[in-house]
Each structure stands twice: as structure tokens, then as C-alpha cells.
Design a protein around this nucleic acid. Structure first.
Length: 385
DNA sequence: TTGGAGTCAATAGG
DNA sequence: CCTATTGACTCCAA
């Protein structure tokens, strides 16, 4: 007998303390949602609306929404899969990701806002929870029935365990080519190497990527994908931290508690990075833009995962000092990868601040990369800052 | 083409 | 079962 909490809209209390004006406008008013007419046209395809709703949506607080959704789901023993597939039209993994690290509304594309609008809509009517629970029961029932009566039925061919031929039934479409790519799983050492490479160059040139792939024995496409994903995920972490920093205060009713988790990407605070991924950038490689041919050998230590390569590459301060400080950037100028100095003690209290800083540094590096790229393309010209 | 945003879907842990 | 992680894909804009 699940009760029905939440009122259609409320939130409000948010302390996004930032310099940007950005008045918290007003969002409480939901787009006059009648209620029954179009509860949730079932993910697939709606008659016509969701997208329009998104376009008119008043800026939602994605953090509050996901928090509420997680709460409702757990309180009612509803899984992400069912919720995602029936309410959002997304798979479990996507839902997990979305709920765990919602991006701030203003950084979402129209498409990206859709799931949040759906969640908001779903939350607005407590009866939706009931419906979902009913579906859950139905699924369970169907499942029970299936396994009870289908003892005879041959195993439905799903994922054929690699290298297994089945004599009888004869698999329908001979996908024998084991055209089920095994899914690459990068070894910890490989990830480490890639992260190191990322710190050197967040945007490696095709040539560099090629070299990396060879050194690590990976397909170049894998390396490319890795960089795409890593950049994207680092960026997202940044957003998260931004939000938390903004809502840092105490305001939160049930504040912190669950918040503590998140920590994942950048804890390697300061030195000693065991296996932490310090975003700290080491000596910057020259701006090898375009075809400027690059070098960088990058110690590939494909085996020993222990840090401490010997013939350190060109720069890299001895002892791998913690203080990035004055980067010994050479000629090239800009190139220098940012690495914030142990900033003002005022901002160093929280370990999270540090990782935030590092991520921001990475972000700045991205910006620099873009500027350089644009600059080289525009052939100098008006790039006065 | 390249990079970003969203997702999917296989997998690893519980 | 469930959830979290993550390499690969699809779309899109520049």
C-alpha cells in the first residue's frame, strides 16, 4: 500500500550560488497538466507532444528530479529497467547513468532534456507509481508462467556462447561468423596508459592515436573511442561537481548523506596517485598542431603497472613533483596545459575542490585546444585577447 | 572529418 | 534479480 508523496511541483529551494545572474526564474508552474488524458503515452512514440513539452518546459532542476525519482523507485522496489523501458524509453544502463549524474538543465540539448521532462511528468502524478507496480506484478506473473510451462521448449537461442555449435535445431540465421564482437575490455594498465596520454594531450592527433594503438596493441578505433568517451565523461564529472559546489551549503533537507558517493574520477588528490588519475598535466608537449609532426614517446610499459618508469620522457619533473607550478613550456607559447597551482588555501579545504580544479584544468585545456585549432585555421588574423 | 551528446548493450558486482 | 561501468554506435553540427 504505497502512499503517494510529492506534490506536482515544489523544489524551489536551491542555492545555485554563482556569479552569473541567472535568476532562479520560476518553474513551479507545470505546464498545466490535466492529468489523465496523456499520462505517459508509453515511451515508444507518443502521439505528439513530449518534444513540444520539452520545448516549452520551464527549466527543471535535474538534480532534484533524479533525486526524487531514485527515492520513489527504491521506496517502491521498482527497478531502473522497468522504469526506463516503460517510462523513459531508455535501457537500464542509461537510466542508471542519468540518475547518478544528471547534467544541469542548461547544459542539456533538447533531446537530453526529454528524459527529465518525462520524469517530472511521471512524478507529478502519484498514480503513475501504482501503474508501474502493476506492470511489475504482471511481468513477474508472466515470467513465472513461462518458466513453468516451457520446460520442454528448447533453450531460446540468445547469446550463443562463443565457439559452440549446436547440432540439432540448427541455429536460424547462421551468424556463425561469431559476429558478436566480444566487447573489448581494457586492462587496468591500458587504461592507465591512456589516461596518461590524455593528460599529455586530451586531443591527440591521428598520428598519436595510431602510435598509442600500436603501443597498447589496440585497434585505433578503440583508442579513438576511448578518448571520446573519456573526454565526455570528464566533462560530465565537471558538471556534477559544479552543481554540488553550488548547492554546497546546508539547505538540503536530507542533504549530504548519499552525496558522498560520486567520488570516482579524480580523487588522486595531490601527489601519490597510486592508481588515481591525476588530471594534473605534466610538461606540455609543444603545440604540434596540424602536420607539425610530433614525437612524444610515451612510455608504454605494457606490463608492470607500477608507476615509476625510468627513462622519463623529456620533461616530466623529477620525482614527479606535485607542484605543477611554472610549467616549463617551451617556445610554442600557449600550449601549456593548465594545471592550477595549489590555489588559495581557502579553496583547498575540501578534497573535492582539488579534483574539481583538476577537472577544470582539463576543461581549459580543451578550450585551448579549440582556440589553437581555430587559430591555425584562420591563419592568425584577428585573435587578440 | 572531427568532436560532442545520447544511448545501447555487454558485463562486472551485489 | 538489480545497479554501475564503459567500449561502441548513431546523429548532428561545425
Amino acid at each position: 500500500a504505497p502512499e503517494s508523496p510529492l506534490s506536482s511541483s515544489e523544489e524551489s529551494i536551491k542555492s545555485a550560488g554563482e556569479l552569473s545572474g541567472q535568476a532562479p526564474a520560476l518553474e513551479p508552474s507545470e505546464p498545466s497538466d490535466s492529468q489523465p488524458s496523456t499520462p505517459l503515452p508509453i515511451p515508444g512514440h507518443s502521439g505528439l507532444s513530449i518534444q513540444e513539452l520539452v520545448a516549452v518546459s520551464p527549466e527543471l532542476d535535474t538534480y532534484v528530479i533524479t533525486k526524487k525519482v531514485k527515492e520513489v523507485l527504491t521506496d517502491n522496489n521498482l527497478g531502473q529497467r522497468l522504469f526506463g523501458e516503460t517510462i523513459l524509453g531508455l535501457t537500464q544502463g542509461s537510466v542508471s547513468d542519468l540518475l547518478a549524474r544528471p547534467k544541469p538543465w542548461h547544459k542539456l540539448s533538447l533531446k537530453g532534456r526529454e528524459p527529465f521532462v518525462r520524469m517530472q511528468l511521471w512524478l507529478s502524478d502519484p498514480r503513475n507509481v501504482e501503474k508501474l507496480m502493476d506492470m511489475k506484478r504482471m511481468e513477474k506473473k508472466a515470467y513465472m508462467k513461462r518458466r513453468h510451462s516451457s520446460v520442454s521448449e528448447s533453450q531460446s537461442v540468445e547469446s550463443v556462447p562463443p565457439g559452440v555449435d549446436f547440432g540439432p535445431g540448427g541455429s536460424p540465421q547462421h551468424q556463425q561468423h561469431q559476429l558478436k564482437k566480444p566487447r573489448v575490455v581494457l586492462a587496468p594498465e591500458e587504461k592507465e596508459a591512456l589516461k596518461r596520454a590524455y593528460q599529455q594531450k586530451p586531443y591527440p592527433s591521428p598520428k598519436t592515436i595510431e602510435e598509442l594503438a600500436n603501443q597498447l596493441n589496440l585497434k585505433t578505433s578503440t583508442v579513438i573511442n576511448w578518448f571520446h568517451n573519456y573526454r565526455s565523461r570528464i566533462r560530465r564529472e565537471l558538471f556534477i561537481e559544479e552543481i554540488q559546489a553550488g548547492a554546497a551549503g546546508e539547505g538540503r533537507e536530507d542533504s549530504l548523506s548519499p552525496a558522498a558517493q560520486t567520488g570516482k574520477v579524480g580523487e588522486g588528490d595531490s601527489c601519490n596517485g597510486t592508481e588515481a588519475d591525476r588530471i594534473r598535466s605534466a610538461g606540455g608537449s609543444g603545440p604540434e598542431e596540424g602536420e607539425g609532426g610530433d614525437k612524444k614517446e610515451l612510455s608504454g610499459d605494457g606490463g608492470a603497472g607500477t608507476p615509476g618508469r625510468s627513462p622519463a620522457p623529456p620533461d616530466s619533473a623529477p620525482t614527479d613533483s606535485c607542484t605543477p607550478g611554472t610549467s616549463n613550456q617551451r617556445e610554442g607559447g600557449v600550449a601549456g596545459l593548465f594545471s592550477f597551482p595549489e590555489a588559495t588555501p581557502t579553496t583547498a579545504r575540501n578534497p573535492r575542490d582539488s579534483s574539481l580544479r583538476k577537472k577544470k584544468a582539463a576543461n581549459l585545456n580543451n578550450i585551448i585546444h579549440r582556440l589553437e585549432k581555430a587559430a591555425s585555421r584562420e591563419e592568425g588574423a584577428e585573435w587578440e585577447f
